[in-house]
Design a protein around this nucleic acid. Structure first.
Lengths: 223, 223
DNA sequence: GGAAAAATTCATCATGTGTTGAATATTGCT
DNA sequence: AGCAATATTCAACACATGATGAATTTTTCC
C-alpha cells in the first residue's frame, strides 16, 4: 500500500537480469558455479555468526545470488547447514587415522597435533567454528558434534587403549582441547589467542596423554 | 483481517486487567514484584536458549507479564541481558578469594573445586550457561566473559604465583575447565554428563595444578 | 479530595525471517 | 526448429521480533 516501486536501474541495488545467465564461453571454472558459491558463503556465514544469526538472505547476498536460489538448491535452511558443514568437514572427518597408529605412549601428542593442524588451517577451521557457534543453541549442530566426537575419536582411540573408563578419559582430553578452541578461536582471549601453536602443543600434549593413558598424576611444582 | 477478537475470559489467553494492580494487603514479598519476576525469567530464558533465541516476548510470557513491561523497566533487550546476568552472577563473581589463600601446591584443587561448586549449583549455573550460550554469537556476552576471567581468575592467581608466562598458564587451566563445562553442561555428552563431580575433581585437579604451577610433565603410562 | 507518579496492558509499527510460486532467460536434446 | 530441463530472479506470504506511545488503573503525596 505504501510501498513505492523502486525506480529500476537507478538505485544502489542493481536489479539483476532475470532467467538463466548465458554461459559466454567460460570453461566452467572461471566463476565458480552458483551452487558452490552458495555452499562457500554458507560455510563462512555460519562460521561467523552461528546458525541462528546466519540468515538465508545474508548467505545469498554473500554468494551474490537471490535467496530463492539457495532454497532451490538445498531446500530448507537446516539442509543448507548440513550440506555446508558436511562438504567442508568431510576431509577433516576422514583424516585422523593417525590416532590409531603408532606408539600409544605418544598418542597424546599425536592427538594434540591433529587438533592444531585442523584448527590452524582456516579452511578446516571454519566448519568447526560454524559447528561450535551453532552447537550451543541448536540441537542439530549439537548432534553433529557429538557424532564427530564419538565416531572419530572415541571409537578410534578406545580400540587402541582399552580401559574401563576410557570414554571418560577421552572426553576429558577432548574437553581440554575444546576449551582451548573456545578461548583461542572463539573468544580470542589473550595471550592464548596469539601464542605459538608449537608452544601450546608442548604444553598440552602431556596433559592429553595423561588423560588418555593415565599414569601417575603430574607432580606438584618443585616449590 | 483474519484475527478473531478473543472472547474475554474464555480463550486460553486470558486478557489481563489493565492498569496498575491493587496491592490487596500483600506484604510486598507475597508474590515477588513483577520487576524481579522479569529478571528471573530473563535469566532462565537466556540460560536455556542463548541471547538470540531468547525473545523479549518469551521472557515476558514466562514472567506472566506484558512484553512492554520488560522494556518499561529495562529499556533494550541488551540491557535486560546485562541486568539479568549481573544480578545472578554477582555472588559468584564476588566469591573466589579462595584462590588467593592457602598452599600454592593445592591451588589446582581449590580452583577445580571452585569450578564445580559453581557449576553443580543450578542457581549459579544458570547465569553461566546464559553467558556461554550467548558468548559464541554475541559480542557483549563475550566481553562479559573475558572480564570475568581476567578480573576473577587471572589477577587473583597471578599475584599468588608469579611467573613470566602465568597468563598463558591460567588460560590453559581455564580452558580445561571451560571444555568440561561445554561437554558436561552444554552438550551433555555421556559419560561426562553423568559422572560424579568428586571423580572429576580427582581427575582434573592435577591437570589444573600442572598448568598453573608447572613442574615436570605427567609421566607416560607404565605400559 | 485532587494531582502526580507508578504499574501495567493494548495496539501498533517497522523490520527481518524462512519459504513458496510464478516468471523469465538460457542450454541441451531430439 | 522445437521442447524439456535448468538456472536464475521477482514478488509476495505469513509470521516473529524489538520497540514505542497511548490508555487505564492504582498508589502515594500534598
Amino acid at each position: 500500500m505504501t510501498a513505492p516501486p523502486p525506480a529500476p536501474s537507478s538505485g544502489p541495488s542493481t536489479p539483476r537480469r532475470r532467467g538463466r545467465p548465458p554461459r559466454a564461453g567460460r570453461t566452467a571454472a572461471d566463476v565458480p558455479a552458483a551452487r558452490d558459491r552458495i555452499l562457500d558463503a554458507a560455510r563462512e556465514t555460519f562460521a561467523a555468526h552461528g546458525y541462528d544469526k546466519a540468515s538465508v538472505r545474508a548467505i545469498a547476498r554473500r554468494a551474490e545470488v537471490d535467496p530463492a536460489l539457495v532454497h532451490h538448491y538445498f531446500g530448507t535452511k537446516e539442509q543448507v547447514f548440513e550440506a555446508a558443514v558436511a562438504k567442508a568437514a568431510a576431509p577433516v572427518l576422514a583424516g585422523p587415522s593417525v590416532l590409531a597408529e603408532g606408539d600409544p605412549r605418544e598418542i597424546g601428542e599425536r592427538m594434540t597435533r591433529l587438533f592444531f593442524s585442523v584448527w590452524e588451517n582456516p579452511a578446516s577451521r571454519e566448519p568447526l567454528l560454524a559447528i561450535i557457534r551453532s552447537v550451543v543453541t541448536h540441537q542439530t549442530a549439537a548432534r553433529i558434534f557429538r557424532q564427530f566426537i564419538t565416531k572419530n575419536l572415541v571409537s578410534r582411540v578406545a580400540q587402541r587403549l582399552p580401559a574401563p573408563d576410557i570414554e571418560t578419559r577421552i572426553e576429558l582430553a577432548v574437553a581440554q582441547l575444546v576449551g582451548v578452541a573456545m578461548l583461542r578461536y572463539v573468544l580470542r582471549a589473550e595471550p592464548l589467542a596469539s601464542a605459538e601453536a608449537e608452544d601450546l602443543i608442548r604444553r598440552l600434549s602431556p596433559v592429553v596423554q595423561f588423560h588418555l593413558a593415565g599414569g601417575p598424576p603430574p607432580l606438584p611444582p618443585e616449590h
